[in-house]
């Protein structure tokens, strides 16, 4: 069994813990933090998938896009809440 696959499955199960916080979490801030953490985990899972399929240079590009859009999305959500005055 591939060690990358093992680690990927472990991270995948951790995503569900974050998903619980994102769905039931009290308040908007918990949800935003949970979504951001899920994005970070998805990034690492993508890199591990690159190792599994032996196409790392391809999956690095995808994970970088994921990191950038995750960062911008979190900031945009925070800005929206700040402008709306819900904090």
């Amino acid at each position: 069994m591939n060690i990358f696959l093992l680690f990927g499955m472990g991270l995948f199960s951790l995503v569900f813990l974050c998903l619980y916080r994102a769905v039931f979490g009290p308040g908007v801030l918990n949800r935003i933090a949970a979504i951001s953490a899920i994005g970070t985990k998805a990034l690492v899972i993508l890199l591990l998938m690159g190792f599994i399929y032996n196409r790392v240079e391809m999956f690095v590009d995808i994970s970088m896009v994921y990191a950038l859009l995750n960062f911008i999305g979190t900031i945009t959500a925070a800005k929206y809440l700040e402008m709306k005055g819900e904090l």
Binding site: V65, L68, L69, I72, I75, T76, K79
Partner: peptide, 11 residues
Amino acid sequence: ILGASFILYLI
């Protein structure tokens, strides 16, 4: 991605 960079600048 290019549009997102401009949106980040706007924010």
